[in-house]
Nucleic acid binder design. Structure first.
Length: 560
RNA sequence: GGCCCGUUGGUCAAGAGGCUAAGACAUCGCCCUCUCACGGCGAAAACAUGGGUUCGAUUCCCGUACGGGUCACCA
């Protein structure tokens, strides 16, 4: 650079003739938010690939809690700078899905009353593809200051450099002798421009890998940073920014205070810090979340889109996990003291929990479906029969139309079944997902009642039929539970079975079986299964006619 | 390969120089019980490793191993 000093001003005009606005104009258009001290402004910035996954919810939940519990702002920015990956309608799906998980945005990309995508808020546009003029203002500034330059290398050039670097065992990247366009003359650049060669804008890095420093991440704590010495691409040849450049410009202008993202971005941090400095922006705080892992054989690995269906949010929807269960479970992973808090406050709204970035784990967590199920069972056990009814109906309508028809035919009947063992201090915990409900109570409907249910081993059909016959002859739907059960004990005694299980256990040789066996016979006859919720309640709800006719048919079957 | 992050029972994890190293899920056993689901009690089960520092390290420092991430005109 000792020859004719490059005229950066001229270069900036050549590259961005259409840009007339200045960074100062931008500062005016997007003023500092008038938020109280300590208010967190955070965002979710996904790319619209149509695949909404747990990572989106993990990040969303974290930034949502951080922002809203501090009286701050949460917004959604769509990072659609890669046209190749964009899927039509993906943004709409994303917003829709996230809202189900309690992640609602104060501003940013939103849905209007027709479900179409639109912007809400004063810091837009919130879709990066609509922000090109803004990025160009800063690109021009950087060029003018000699902090960025055009590069005319082709893909083949870059591939060649990579191969060379591999051969020389050098670090990869555009730097040093491979930074071919870093210090070219204005004439050479003019020549390429005139011939219409496509170019990208590169950052002129002044960093050195010899320089190290510390940075404090809100989750990871103090991390060692090695300065970046790569001249990364800022603007692609189509004039659209790379993630890095867009991140710096957008999060500055949108006045983001906390950047919550996956820790796969940690290695990009040196460059981001450098970029913010070069642009004269104040650095936001970073919150790098550990990646969700999964057990694969004997080792952990990152949850994979291709191999793990449970990474996709659509999985939880189709299996029928309540969204609240997923949220609760994720919270147990995100904040280690959440479980204790929840135990102490079983019914408190989630917002009452004091979320803290300090309570987040630096390491990636293993995703545990069994734990999710436990959380979900507990949550569902606390719901009212009415709420369960509504949730199952909604689920079945979409995923199991046949079951939906039976389930909703007589709401009062269905709700009565769902009410068995519900409420009180020790509610039943039978299912973790809506799709399990059919297995739990399907027998209440003729379509799913198993007429060939297996009776307990060790009893001949004749004996069972005799006992069922006796049961039928004394059964009255008017009996209360005690009377009903006493009658069953009488039958037990008559057939040589113990009235009480304890008696039987004391001297098993004296009896053919015990009261438990008698009720098992009736249970199988009525429900087709050896396990069921409270039999008396089941028979009451089923009604005299259905209950007795099922038993009658079983007697015929056993005798036949 | 360079750079970076991580490592307490099978899993999630508390602990932040001195503890018999919490708790939850899962597993197993017992109790309760007409089955199941609950509920109760109990068992088994961990500081990756080698060096330091220290009177004393799971805890602090360095190395090693293992796991993960990243090195694109993808985010």
């Amino acid at each position: 650079m000792d020859q004719t000093l490059i005229d950066y001003e001229t270069l900036a005009e050549w590259l961005f003739p259409e840009v007339t606005e200045t960074p100062e104009d931008m500062e005016k258009r997007y003023p500092v938010r008038g938020l109280p001290e300590g208010a967190v402004v955070s965002r979710l910035a996904p790319s619209p690939t149509g695949f909404v996954h747990l990572g989106n919810v993990v990040q969303g939940l974290t930034s949502e809690r951080l922002a809203h519990q501090s009286g701050g702002v949460l917004f959604l920015r769509i990072e659609d700078t890669d046209a190749k990956r964009e899927v039509k309608g993906a943004s709409e799906i994303l917003i829709e899905m996230l809202s189900h998980y309690g992640i609602v945005f104060d501003e940013g990309a939103s849905l209007d009353e027709n479900g179409a995508i639109c912007d809400k808020g004063d810091y837009g546009p919130y879709k990066q593809s609509n922000r090109a003029p803004i990025y160009h203002v800063y690109a021009k500034k950087l060029v003018r200051e000699g902090k960025a330059y055009p590069c005319f290398c082709t893909e083949e050039d870059l591939d060649r450099f990579h191969a060379e670097q591999e051969a020389e065992k050098a670090n990869f990247g555009y730097y040093g002798k491979w930074a071919k366009w870093r210090d070219r003359s204005l004439e050479e650049i003019r020549e390429q421009l005139d011939s219409g060669t496509p170019w990208v804008l590169r950052f002129r890095s002044t960093g050195s890998i010899e320089h190290k420093f510390k940075y404090n991440d809100l989750i990871k704590g103090e991390v060692d940073i090695t300065e970046n010495d790569i001249d990364h691409v800022l603007l692609k040849s189509d004039g659209i920014p790379t993630y890095h450049f867009a991140h710096a410009v957008d999060d500055h202008l949108m006045r983001t205070t906390h950047v919550v993202r996956g820790d796969e971005w940690l290695s990009g941090l040196p460059f981001h810090i450098q970029l913010f400095q070069a642009l004269g922006f104040r650095l936001p705080k970073y919150v790098h979340i550990g990646t969700l892992m999964k057990m694969d054989g004997t080792s952990k690995r990152k949850l994979s889109k291709r191999k793990d269906p449970e990474l996709a949010l659509s999985y939880y929807k189709s299996v029928g996990y309540p969204t609240d269960s997923v949220v609760e479970y994720l919270m147990t992973i995100l904040n280690s003291n959440f479980e204790d808090w929840r135990r102490a406050n079983p019914l408190a709204p989630l917002d009452d929990f004091k979320f803290s970035a300090k309570k987040m784990n630096a390491a990636g967590s293993l995703f545990d479906l069994a734990k999710l199920s436990d959380v979900s069972k507990n949550l569902i056990s606390r719901m009212s029969a009415e709420d369960v009814y509504n949730a199952v109906s909604e689920w079945a309508k979409e995923f199991d139309g046949e079951f939906y028809d039976d389930f909703t035919r007589e709401p009062a009947f269905t709700k009565a079944v769902l009410a068995i063992g519900r409420g009180g201090n020790k509610p039943r915990k039978d299912f973790a997902t809506w799709s399990e409900v059919k297995g739990y109570m399907g027998f209440m409907f003729d379509r799913y009642y198993e007429a060939n249910g297996a009776y307990p081993d060790g009893f001949d059909a004749g004996t069972i039929a005799d006992i069922l016959t006796d049961f039928l002859s004394t059964y009255s739907s008017a009996d209360d539970q005690t009377v009903w059960f006493d009658k069953m004990k009488d039958i037990a005694e008559k057939h040589g079975f113990a009235r009480e299980t304890k008696e039987y256990k004391a001297s098993p040789e004296a009896y053919r079986g015990h009261i438990g066996d008698i009720s098992a016979f009736v249970r199988v006859a009525v429900t087709g299964k050896q396990n069921s919720p409270d039999l008396y309640a089941v028979m009451s709800i089923l009604g005299h006619e259905v209950a007795t006719s099922r038993i009658q048919k079983q007697i015929e079957r056993l005798r036949g």
